[in-house]
Every structure is written in structure tokens, then in C-alpha cells.
Design a protein around this nucleic acid. Structure first.
Lengths: 121, 121
DNA sequence: TCATCATATGAGCAATCGTTCATATGATAG
DNA sequence: CTATCATATGAACGATTGCTCATATGATGA
């Protein structure tokens, strides 16, 4: 008996090879797709999403955020670190207090589109 | 000695109470924020992101996707289930083959904005 | 009816994630 | 300097995630 041509991954025989070839050519590269999904991963936690929504309305310190969102200072601080390393927020120090704000207009644009999406239907 | 007013969550005393009150009024409700972050969570996996990018170029069957993305049929099928239950893809059956396609124009819009974001700087 | 094929799905596992707790850092006031 | 306060961070944990493997489903053709 003959071995299948697609044995490792896809065990079917009637794939649409021409379509696959075309799509492979038209799709974005793997690298930018990965980066985009990493961006979405950061948005994909409700604590971080709430932080970003709050910072869209005003610059706030860690303590403000923890009072506003009713979460511990530590939890907020950990999430701010993730948001900052993803360059979604920026910070400025004033004495002992560190103020955070949105780093980028695109953040809000993407969120607005997503809100539009979930509010329709 | 008096007990702190903010003892449970935030142990600082000099929060900006008026700003917090204003932001609390201007922010979206907790529920839609949660839904938006759930939406992003689905986008936030590179396998699902690649599936969506592929389906943006053409309707494809499970086998096509598994060949195109070089992943097992099972892995693809599991992810398609998540995408379908999030109503990001739709399917149609033709004999034994199930064809998947994007369910919604908004999906692509949100992705396009995200691609713009990561490609600048 | 039965074998075959494309797809779907449940259990299990390793990896990742978000929080808590304890503690460190770094600026300020006395 | 020292005490205090806002913030940052490392370790540890329970929960969730994405994949694999084995098997189930459901349509087709003989």
C-alpha cells in the first residue's frame, strides 16, 4: 500500500492546492501576524482593558487606578508594567507619585472599533 | 489613632478623588469592557490570527487551513470552534467538506488598524 | 449496510497568565 | 540620617490555554 502524500499534518487527499498557493502568496507574513496577535493579547485581559479605558479619560496614578478599579496596588502595578513594555502607556514621575497616560492614539481607535463591533447586531 | 479610609485596596492617602469620580462617570460600563477584552482575547493567539488572515483571502476548508498553516487538523478544528462560537467565522457544509469564511467585515477592519499600528514607528 | 473520508470533540498535559503576599526601591519630609 | 509613603518586583499559587492523541460523528459511494 502507498504512503499518503500528506501524512504528517493533513491526512486528507483532496485539498485545494491552487487556492492554498494563492492564499499563501496574498497573506501577510508570519512575523507581523504574530506581532498583531501579541498586541491583541495585551488588550485581551479585562483588567488591562479597564486601565486603558480609564487612562483614555485622564492621566492617573497607580493609586487612583487601584481605587477606581477596586484592585490591589500590586495587581495594577504588574499590569501597568505589561502595558508599558508593550508601549501602550507612558509614565511621568512627580515626587513620589507616578502618573500614567495612554502612549498612542491608535490604542483608542482600535478600542473604539471593537466597541462598535460588540454593540451592534 | 484613626483608621485609614482606604485600608482594603489602596493604602495611600492622597488619591485624586475628584478625578476618580469624573473618570468613573465617563468610562464605559464594566460589562462592555469585559466583552471587548473577550473579543481581543480571541484575536490574541497567533494560530487564530493566521486563520483569520487566511480566511480573509479565501473561503477554505479545515484541511486547507491545516496544510496552509502546517498544523494538525485537530488543532485547526479546535481553534475554528472557538472562532465560530465567537461568531468571527461562519461555515457551510458541502458533502464531507466544511468550508469556513469570515463572518463579519469588522474583523478585518480591526485587524487592518492593528497592522497599521505595528507597522508604524 | 459498510467502509472511507473530512471534520469534531473529550481527556490529558505542559506552558502561560493574573493575582496575592512579602519585600525592595526610590523620593520626600523632618 | 531616618521614617514614611507611592510604587515596583520576585516567588508562588491556582486557573486558563493550546496542543496532542485517541476516538466519535456524519456524509458519501460501493
Amino acid at each position: 500500500m502507498m504512503k499518503s502524500e500528506h501524512s504528517e499534518i493533513c491526512d486528507c487527499n483532496v485539498i485545494h492546492e491552487d487556492t492554498i498557493a494563492r492564499v499563501r502568496g496574498e497573506m501577510p507574513e508570519e512575523d507581523p501576524i504574530y506581532e498583531v496577535s501579541e498586541l491583541f493579547k495585551v488588550f485581551g485581559d479585562s483588567t488591562r482593558a479597564r486601565i486603558l479605558c480609564a487612562l483614555d479619560k485622564s492621566e492617573l496614578c497607580v493609586c487612583d487606578l487601584s481605587a477606581l478599579l477596586n484592585m490591589t496596588q500590586s495587581a495594577i502595578s504588574h499590569q501597568l508594567r505589561i502595558l508599558k513594555s508593550a508601549r501602550m502607556v507612558k509614565s511621568r514621575r512627580s515626587g513620589k507619585v507616578v502618573y500614567y497616560s495612554l502612549a498612542d492614539d491608535h490604542i483608542k481607535q482600535i478600542f473604539d472599533l471593537a466597541f462598535e463591533h460588540i454593540l451592534e447586531d
